[in-house]
Structures are given as C-alpha cells and as structure tokens.
Computed example of a mutant assay.
Amino acid sequence: MSSILDDLKMQYQLGGVAFRLIFWNVLCFLVSLPFFYQFQLGVFNFPDWIVLTSDPSVLITKPWTLISYAFFHHGFGHLFFNMMVLHFSSMLFLTFFNSKQFIGLYLLSALFSGIAFVTGYYFLHLSSAMVGASGAIMAILVATTTYRPLMTIRLLFFGNVKLWHITMVILVLDFMQFRIENTGGHIAHLAGAFFGFIFIKLLQNGIDLSRILNNPFQKSRRAPFKKVHKNYPKSAPKPSSRIVVKDKTQQQIDEILDKISQSGYDCLTQEEKEFLFKAGK
C-alpha cells in the first residue's frame, strides 16, 4: 500500500498542472460519495455550501460556491466525460500556453460561468443548483480553438479533422438543447466558451487575465536570478568566467528525469523511485 501511495505522490509531483487538476476533481468526487450520494435513490444531494444555487440570497452568504461547484460532479458518467474532455483540451492548450495561464483560465471561467448561470436563471425566473467543471473545460477548449482553429486532430473513426470542427459541433449541440434539458448547464457551457474566446483575444492584445491569480497547483519558486552589469575601469581586468559543476544529487536527478522522458515512469527501479521521491521533498 505504501508503494502505491508513493507512486501516486510521484505521479502528482511529475504529472503537471492538468494532471493535478484532474486529480482534485476525482478526489472531490470520491470524497463526496459516502456523504452526499443517496444509494437508495441513486442521486446526489449536495448541500448549498458546495453547489452553486441560482438563488442570489443564498449565493451572497456563500460566495465561495462560485468556485467550489466546479470541482464536484453528480455522477460517474458526468465526471468521466468532463475529465476526458479536460485531458484532451489541456494537452492542446498547454502546447501554446503556460500552466499559470491554464489554471487561471480554469478558475476565472468557472467564476464567469457561475455568474452567468445565476444571472440567466434570475431573468428566466427559474430555480436550480449546479455542479460540474463543464463551463471551465469549454473555456479551455474554445480558447485553444480561437488561437489555433486550423490545428489538425486525428479522431478514431473520423480521421483528420480541424479543431474548430470539433468545437463547433459541441457548441451547436449546446444551442440545440438549451431549452430542452439542463438549461443551467448549457448556460454555463456557452458562458465558458465566450470567456475562453475573450481570454485569448485579450491575451493577443497584451492583457493576460491569469496574472490576477496565483497558481495553487504549482509550487512556489524563487524569483529568477538577475544579472547585474557592472562597469569596470579600463585598467582593471574583467573577472574570469567560472564553470559551475552540478553536485552528484542533482546529476542523478537529471539522469532519472531523462530516463522518464525517454521510457516513462514505469521503467524506473524501486530504488530510483524512492530516491526521486525523497529528493522532491
């Protein structure tokens, strides 16, 4: 059991921001099962301090639900589909953008989608509650599509298709089902898609919205070293350059990481896994 936990910890450390986000979504779902799933009725009964309710009077007293709802799901199928799309979208998004922009877009679009849901239901005179990461995931997908619409994606049974074709089909399905079922969910999807589009357009104009958030899924790092240029007198010789040699521990870490990049994490020996886990602490 301890080796499994160590492997999970190692995967969490090396998996990247998208893997960590999926991990937290799955963990929240598993934790919610024994508390909020009514096994006899087969439904989830989340309390109003987790779900996002369309009642503004409740939202005012529990503003954190504008974020918390995006980490819970009302069933395994809901979770599985969302995490599949999140995995697909995150791989594409992180090809062009960094992890801070990724998590910033996820959180900000979840917030925007939640506000759109509450506002839409208020004007439609409807009442409901919502959970799920669909709005934030749509933002990531549409953001990538806005930036590289002609990217070619190879799909099973369909062959090569353009990314904008995939995104367009999803958006059309949302529009078609808007008043048929799950109106709140479709409002969140479309709001997330709109936010993803705006996020990229602002980014292309030099405005990075993700800067207003810190990345909670990434360890803080020291500020990068800055060179200081000093003017020396002409008579004084310039300092000679020095070669910095890595210590043995760092060299061994680099060799293990190279091995992972070439053959995958499973190719490591137990000693290498334990060494890398201890070095990451």
Rank of each mutant, 00 (worst) to 15 (best):
I207H: 10
M1R: 13
F96G: 04
M91L: 13
V31T: 11
I60D: 09
D254M: 06
Y265G: 10
L150M: 05
H186Y: 12
M10R: 06
W24K: 00
Y122V: 08
L171G: 02
F81I: 14
K278Y: 05
I243D: 10
D258F: 09
R211C: 13
A129R: 11
Q250C: 08
K248Y: 04
L203N: 05
V26Y: 01
F175S: 09
S263H: 15
P237Y: 15
H78F: 11
M168R: 08
H189W: 06
K234M: 13
C267K: 12
A193T: 00
Y12W: 13
F97G: 05
F178V: 06
L257D: 08
F35C: 07
L27F: 03
T146Y: 01
S2R: 14
Q250M: 08
S210N: 06
C28G: 09
L59E: 11
G114L: 01
V51Y: 06
V85H: 09
F36V: 00
R221H: 12
G196A: 01
M84D: 00
F36R: 00
D174A: 14
H74G: 12
K234W: 11
Y106E: 05
G114P: 02
F36I: 01
I212D: 12
L173M: 15
V131D: 00
Q101T: 02
M176C: 14
S90V: 01
A236D: 12
F88A: 05
F157H: 10
L27H: 00
G135W: 02
L5F: 08
S220F: 09
S89W: 03
K62I: 11
G185R: 00
F80K: 13
G184Q: 09
I170F: 11
T144E: 00
Y69I: 08
L203C: 03
F19R: 07
Y121P: 00
G77V: 13
D247P: 04
W49H: 07
T145Y: 02
T144W: 02
Q270C: 10
M151H: 10
K9N: 11
I50G: 03
A236H: 15
S90I: 02
A143M: 05
P56Q: 07
Q38D: 15
I180G: 03
I103E: 01
L124K: 11
T183V: 14
I137T: 05
Q177S: 15
